[in-house]
């Protein structure tokens, strides 16, 4: 396995990066941590003639809380940046926890949240928790800038709405919200360096024991990360109980359409959705943090 030859650019500003991307056209690829891109290039699955690294754009690496907007995560923040961010610990600890469940320490030091989203594989670990927390993202082009709710971003395995010849994902925004608890449960086949067989994120807004609202997002069981609306409907306005959460788990299975692959059968994944959904809800309700 060998990286083929390519031109390498490391623009100093976002505008320059966007212009380069537009000028170089489809033969160029954005490089963040490279933990997905470089592997694909080594396998010959993508063969860009030019690679545009975002490494000089430090402004895309910050994680801050902007009152009135929410927590703004730069697309270049690494998984370990998410794991260690005091801002996330204060506002959305479950995002730090989810990031900690990814890959292994070496990869967490390199892989970025932006790469995880744009790469758009169904088993990616960050989309479920970010969708459950109602995240939206900003895509900047050479002459444009738009915001997209994350749950509408993914269009299929390895497909998303980003314009690959013009747009760069710059930030992920977790809006201030009434959510009282959230969590992400990952089921992998070993404790480190395992891709998800199934992942379930849940966010709940509780009023005492009453579930005012909830968002449940399933990973690795559908072509894209998918909201389990049926399960959310089961919960809305109800007083929580183990039975109710189990019912939500059953309902969540109906929202999944998993495939059988080397990591597990569809049948197993469906049952995992059921189990993980009720467990994630229980944690979100009882753990006491968002």
């Amino acid at each position: 396995m060998f990286l083929p030859d390519f031109d390498y650019h490391a623009p100093e500003t976002l505008a320059e990066a966007c212009d380069l991307l537009r000028d170089l056209g489809p033969s160029a690829k954005i490089l963040a941590g490279g933990t997905d891109l470089l592997i694909k290039m080594k396998h010959g699955l993508v063969t860009p003639r030019a690679v545009i690294s975002l490494k000089a754009l430090d402004e895309l690496k910050t994680i801050t809380h902007v009152p009135g907007r929410g927590v703004v995560i730069g697309a270049r923040a690494t998984h370990n940046d998410l794991v260690n961010s005091p801002v996330l610990h204060e506002h959305f600890l479950s995002v730090s926890e989810a990031a900690h469940k990814m890959a292994n320490n070496q990869i967490r030091n390199r892989g970025t949240v932006g790469g995880n989203l744009v790469n758009a594989i169904p088993s990616a670990d960050l989309p479920p928790i970010l969708i459950a927390l109602d995240a939206w993202i900003t895509l900047v082009g050479s002459n444009t800038s738009r915001t997209v709710p994350l749950h509408t971003f993914f269009t299929g395995p390895s497909c998303c709405v980003i314009d690959p010849v013009d747009e760069i994902l710059t930030e992920i925004v977790l809006p201030d919200q009434p959510t009282t608890g959230s969590t992400y449960l990952k089921f992998g086949l070993r404790r480190s360096g395992a891709l998800s067989v199934t992942g379930v994120a849940a966010a709940v807004t509780m009023d005492g024991d009453t579930i005012v609202d909830s968002r449940i997002c399933l990973g690795a069981v559908f072509p894209v990360p998918v909201r389990a609306h049926d399960a959310e409907d089961v919960l809305r306005g109800k007083t929580w109980s183990d039975e109710l959460l189990a019912e939500a788990g059953e309902a969540a299975s109906c929202c999944a359409l998993p495939i059988t692959d080397i990591r597990g059968t569809a049948e197993y994944r469906l049952d995992l959705v059921r189990v993980l959904t009720k467990r994630a809800l229980k944690r979100a309700i009882t753990e006491g943090h968002v």
Binding site: R190, R191, S192, L195, I262
Partner: peptide
């Protein structure tokens, strides 16, 4: 189908 260390899973220290 799994000639790699991602899908041929040997344990890690964590396991």
């Amino acid at each position: 189908a799994n000639p790699n260390l991602s899908e041929y899973r040997i344990p890690t220290a964590m396991d």
